[in-house]
């Protein structure tokens, strides 16, 4: 699995299948995300996009198929190992921890925190304090860049829907991931904020972060993505550049429901 430039894909899913009862939600689907790319995943409602995300992040166990992330097979890892490996997801409906402050939401996401082992709170208290300080700075910088810095001490539950989306993406960055999986980052967000979110994604991408995005808003997909994968009824329908996909008769048919 090497592309025309000889690059290894960062994430490669091969022939994944998952059935819920009699429904084959994901049926022999494959996907590749090249490092440094913004890859889109589109398809009509019920095509199995979110299930595919759940499979990739190990929230759901696939019936068959392989997933390779960063050269390592991640089939047998637990969901929490995935983030530690450098792949982090957001949710379709933004899930912030409402009774924690915005800052606490951010700090939670940092990996390898010594203070997350309770004995270290006593045994290595200076390391814990030091890390906490560094992470606070990093979180402040990210919040600043998405324009949430003024709300850092507020409850995350007090944020508006759009701000929650921003916080969720910002929180994902605190993981210091290699790959971010965004599940409909533009859903339920006003047009101005959609533009902002797109700008942020492009900027972070230029800084070297890879994205895989599920999105229904075609303007967003077309303007952001280098490569688009189309899923319909759990199966791969097509993949290519946004322009190729736009002209693909099968894709149009799937969307318009011929």
């Amino acid at each position: 699995m090497v592309d025309s430039h000889g690059r290894q894909p960062l994430l490669a899913a091969n022939a994944l299948s998952k059935s819920f009862g009699g429904i084959r939600a994901v049926d022999n689907a494959s996907l590749e995300v090249l490092p440094g790319s913004i890859t889109g995943l589109i398809g009509p409602n019920g095509a199995g996009k979110t299930t595919l995300f759940n499979l990739l992040c190990r929230f759901v166990q696939p019936d068959s198929g392989q997933i390779i992330f960063d050269g390592v097979s991640i089939q047998h890892l637990q969901p929490h190992d995935i983030a530690q490996q450098g792949m982090v997801r957001t949710f379709q409906v933004a899930r912030v921890l409402s009774k924690l402050s915005v800052m606490e939401n951010m700090l939670l996401a940092a990996q390898h925190q010594a203070g997350e082992r309770f004995w270290n709170v006593w045994l290595r208290s200076s390391t814990v304090r030091q890390q906490e300080r560094e992470q606070r700075e990093q979180a402040s910088a990210i919040l600043e860049s998405v324009g949430l810095a003024h709300m850092a001490q507020d409850y995350a539950g007090a944020l508006s829907g759009g701000q929650r989306k921003l916080l969720e993406i910002a929180r994902a960055l605190m993981v210091r991931p290699k790959l971010v999986l965004l599940d409909e980052p533009a859903a339920g967000v006003n047009p101005t904020l959609i533009n902002q979110i797109c700008d942020h994604i492009l900027r972070w991408n230029q800084e070297g972060l890879t994205f895989l995005i599920i999105e229904h808003n075609m303007d967003v997909v077309m303007s952001l993505c280098d490569r688009v994968w189309v899923l319909a009824e759990g199966r791969n329908l097509a993949s290519g550049t946004p322009t190729e996909i736009q002209q693909n008769a099968q894709v149009l048919e799937a969307y318009l429901g011929q």
Binding site: H80, Q84, V88, F91, R95, V96, L100, A109
Partner: peptide, 18 residues
């Protein structure tokens, strides 16, 4: 903080590597 996150939403805590 991790405990409180679990109280609020386990799935998020899991997705963030806890």
């Amino acid at each position: 903080r991790v405990l409180k996150a679990i109280r609020e939403d386990e799935e998020v805590a899991k997705a963030l590597g806890k």
